[in-house]
Design a protein around this nucleic acid. Structure first.
Length: 863
RNA sequence: GCGGGUGUGGCGGAAUUGGUAGACGCGCCAGACUCAAAAUCUGGUGACCGCAAGGUCGUGGGGGUUCAAGUCCCUCCACCCGCACCA
């Protein structure tokens, strides 16, 4: 009867209203403006899989907070959105449901666009792009032709990683633990003709620039560093002997340890080395050995357990500096054809693999580097190779030098004799971009039986994907299309065939950030726009692209610059990698995974199925379909609103760490939204009439304290947002709202301070919960949109307290706290500290031997 | 194996960069309102001893430096991530 109805904030209506208001005012449309500082915020664009997931919500919330914050701080902010729209799932859907991939993709885009708009993101939707549209990929085809002309794209036959499930080739970066990054199927080796991008032309640049990218996470830079894998060493040519047909032939070897050459006791070839094949002709035993190596595979377990094995070819090589010393030449299973020259010299003393090998085949082990604490007369090697520094021994003209000096000395001597030279090797391989798929950008070349590979003339671009393809047989539908690939050769006019491979979809995502600068331009990139907006000031996305997309984009930016499209080295000045969203996992009694909405809390506190069956609760893991532990963001937004989802995303967990999604956490966030709304709406009568606040009146002490709290919050939240410490910013905003809630304004000065506090609070939550902030801004009496308001500035004078609380310790143990005027004299602090009863008790009858005073902080009495 | 990271209450996490450990939130407990529940509000909440005042312990384990250590150094342990026969 008397229950007072608690007024509620109608989230759904309010959020729709403000989204419409922003759209009508076209708030987020931007254009180049040389008079204002620009700021380009970009989140990794989504693949249109059908619905947004929690990872998107976190990604776009983080980006949106930054975009809105920078906007309020006066930057001309570019914050676009688009679709990484080519890819295999569209073909799978076509096979499963008979929907054409283009149609499926466009429908998904429509759904996801609406879902993203429901998040209230400050996106300039006028710049939306989808990479599957010819208006986008036609430019990519032109880029390819330019890369081809510049020698940055080429075709060669090579061993490739073949994904038997996706029926396509994968780049090295896309093979994770020997499996396809998307399908998870064990990768097979196949030999195919492939298009490559010459990323290795930039190995050194891509590596050295990492050192200057101070706004990238150390971790990502390190991963790229290791991926590029630069090794300094030498190429050494050994003379082959032992069979007349090899006289005069040389064996080339790469080593990072030329200094250990005098310790060499054998050389070894990869089973795939051309010389191995030659030797195997007429040597059935060697042929069998090579086949055995192939069978072993390259999976990590196989490598882990594989024994070092070799086959003595009975051919030998001559040591370049020791006349008459012959090193036996083996074919060995641990030598990779993909690295260096596919051949090594073995120095067992200073390489563990070589030592294992030497022990197995009873080869000589000669130490050539003497550890600093060892005695040259007695030093011997056991089962562990010595990898450290020291002085050279048993090494002729190198004796007595340290390792570094020995390296230079021997390389110089090798060079003089024409037996070798310094060389730098990289682990990085060129990027294979051919994919045997339909739903990708066609590679614009034509294969002519007479002219060979002929680029499609520019005037004939774009090469459009056909719409009428059938998915009734395995493999690439473009190959099976009745007419598409038939074409006249642009060179000779004869019958020819189009390339049926399409680009790896990482090609589209390697330049989309640049297209956003001029998304409707006739040419690929409008230079003026690109020069104004690029580089991206803040890029936000998942760590899973640490080497894939982020390395390809860095390469592409350089390649585009070399071809005159851009004048830029690095595309992303700042990078932030967010953590993953995790959730508890649930299993039914029969072992099946259960989704969060298939379980509930039972009466006994345990988790049960909806019909009461006991559920096993597993640990929190990354949300994934396979574990069924996903929560649909659309439902969360429908129930609680976008602001609640955003606020929860930002609370508690630092954004770079994994976070747990919990129902309780969402409800807590929702309560805060409601509480803040109530707090403001119920206080309106106590506030001086709005909008805004004039100059501060004469303030009493309480008003002054509140004012100080407001300004401290401004300073802290500004700093926290600037440094991606959103969880701390959230805590600050809770503190301010608690202070406001506890405050009873009694005087007009206090009412003034209360209004200021409210206005500050509403402005500060603006980037995080934009709908609620607009709603409250309006209720505070403003006619303007909060989104157009500048960020508040803190009054520096209000950030320091007049009094401070000092800790008083006795022998380092806290015994009391004392309150003093800021910057009080040390004597005063000491007197007051020693007068504390608790301090006297702790001191007993001992006298202070020393008193350490840190101003405004601590007094430590040492007895 | 190599490289990197993390470890703080029941939980997520703070800690001015060597100066009051546990901000803020979640959860939990108690109380108010209610016939009751929900919602809301108020108070409490690291552990142990104690009626209390108060005290002892406490940031993965062990050791050290310091007037003072979550923070610096050494060492060990656990978990996570990346790379992996790279010559």
């Amino acid at each position: 009867m008397n229950t007072r109805a608690i007024a509620r904030y109608n989230v759904t209506d309010s959020e729709a209203k403000w989204q419409q208001a922003w759209e009508q005012a076209d708030c987020f449309a931007v254009r180049e403006d040389p008079t204002r500082p620009k700021y380009y915020v970009l989140e990794m664009f989504p693949y249109p899989s059908g619905r947004i997931h929690m990872g998107h919500v976190r990604n776009y919330t983080i980006g949106d907070v930054i975009a809105r914050f920078k906007r309020a701080r006066g930057f001309n902010v570019l914050h676009p959105m688009g679709w990484d729209a080519f890819g295999l799932p569209a073909e799978n859907a076509a096979m499963a449901k008979g929907v054409p991939p283009g149609e499926w993709t466009n429908e998904n885009i429509a759904v996801m666009r609406a879902q993203l708009k429901g998040m209230g993101l400050s996106i300039d939707w006028g710049r939306e792009i989808a990479t599957c549209h010819p208006e986008y990929y036609r430019h990519e085809q032109k880029m390819f032709l330019d890369f081809l002309a510049a020698g940055l794209a080429y075709r060669r036959e090579s061993w490739v990683n073949w994904d038997p499930v996706d029926q396509t080739v994968l780049a090295n970066e896309q093979v994770i633990d020997g499996r396809g990054w998307r399908s998870g199927a064990p990768v097979e080796k196949r030999k195919l003709s492939q298009w490559f991008f010459k990323i290795t032309a930039f190995s050194d640049e891509l590596l050295s620039a990492l050192g200057t990218m101070d706004r990238w996470p150390e971790k990502v830079r390190l991963m790229q560093h290791n991926w590029i894998g630069r090794s300094e060493g030498a190429r050494i040519r050994f003379r082959l002997g032992g069979r007349p047909e090899f006289d005069g032939d040389r064996l080339e070897v790469f080593t990072t340890r030329p200094d250990t050459l005098f310790g060499a006791s054998f050389c070894a070839l990869s089973p795939h080395h051309p010389l191995s094949a030659r030797l195997a002709e007429g040597d059935a035993e060697l042929l069998a050995f090579i086949a055995e190596c192939d069978r072993l595979g390259t999976s990590e377990e196989a490598i882990e357990t594989a024994e070092k094995k070799g086959y003595d070819t009975s051919v030998w090589v001559e040591h370049p500096f020791v006349a008459g010393q012959r090193l036996p030449l083996y074919v060995a299973n641990f030598v990779l054809m993909e690295y260096g020259t596919g051949a090594i010299f073995g120095c067992p003393g200073h390489d563990q693999r070589d030592l294992d090998f030497a022990r197995k085949y009873a080869l000589e082990v000669v130490p050539v580097v003497l550890p600093p604490d060892a005695d040259a007369a007695t030093y011997e090697l056991g089962d562990e190779a010595y990898l450290g520094d020291g002085l050279m021994i048993n090494s002729d003209f190198l004796d007595g030098l340290d390792v570094e000096a020995a390296k230079s000395a021997i390389v110089e001597r090798l060079h003089e004799h024409g037996d070798g030279e310094p060389e730098i090797q990289y682990r990085l391989r060129d990027w294979g971009v051919s994919r045997q798929r339909y739903w990708g950008c066609p590679i614009p070349v034509i294969h002519c039986p007479d002219c060979g590979v002929v680029p499609v003339p520019e005037a004939q671009l774009p090469v459009l994907l056909p719409d009428d393809v059938a998915f009734d047989q395995p493999g690439n539908p473009l190959v099976h299309h009745p007419t598409w690939k038939r074409v006249d050769c642009p060179a000779c006019g004869g019958a020819a065939e189009r390339e049926t491979d399409t680009f790896d979809t990482f090609v589209e995502s390697s330049w989309y950030f640049a297209r956003f600068c001029s998304p409707r331009a006739d040419q690929a990139l409008d230079r003026a726009a690109a020069d104004y907006w690029l580089p991206v000031d803040q890029y936000v996305g998942g760590i899973e692209h640490a080497v894939l997309h982020l390395l390809y984009s860095r390469f592409f930016t350089r390649a585009l610059s070399r071809c005159g499209y851009l004048d830029l080295d690095e595309p992303f000045a700042g990078l932030f990698t967010q953590g993953m969203i995790c959730h508890e996992t649930y299993r039914a009694p029969d072992g099946k995974w259960l989704a969060p909405d298939q379980v509930r809390r039972g009466s006994g506190g345990g988790v049960v199925t909806l019909d009461g069956q006991p559920v096993t609760v597993g640990r929190s893991e990354k949300m994934s379909k396979s574990k069924a532990n996903t929560v649909d963001p659309a439902q969360i937004i429908e129930t609680y609103g976008a602001d609640t989802a955003r606020w929860f995303m930002l609370s508690d967990s630092p954004p770079d760490r994994d976070m747990d999604w919990t129902e309780a956490g969402v409800e807590g966030a929702f309560r805060f939204i409601q509480r803040l709304w109530r707090l403001v709406t119920e206080s309106l009568d106590d506030l001086p009439a709005g909008p805004g606040n004039g100059a501060p009146p004469e303030l009493d002490a309480r008003a002054h304290d509140l004012r100080r709290a407001s300004h401290k919050a401004i300073a802290a939240v500004t700093d926290d947002v600037e440094r991606f410490r959103f969880n701390r910013a959230v805590a600050r905003l809770y503190e301010l709202s608690n202070a406001v809630a506890d405050f009873e304004a009694e005087s007009s000065a206090e009412r003034w301070a209360l209004r200021e506090a409210f206005e500050v609070l509403v402005r500060l939550i603006g980037p995080m919960t934009p709908h609620l902030a607009e709603e409250l801004w309006q209720r505070l009496g403003h006619q303007t949109l909060l989104v157009d308001e500048p960020w508040p500035t803190a009054d520096a004078a209000l950030l320091v307290d007049e009094t401070v609380t000092l800790a008083v310790q006795v022998n380092g143990k806290l015994r009391a706290t004392i309150t003093l005027p800021r910057d009080a004299e040390d004597d005063a602090a000491q007197d007051q500290a020693l007068a504390e009863p608790a301090v006297q008790r702790a001191m007993g009858d001992r006298a202070a031997r020393k008193v350490i005073i840190v101003k405004n902080r601590v007094v430590n009495v040492v007895v």
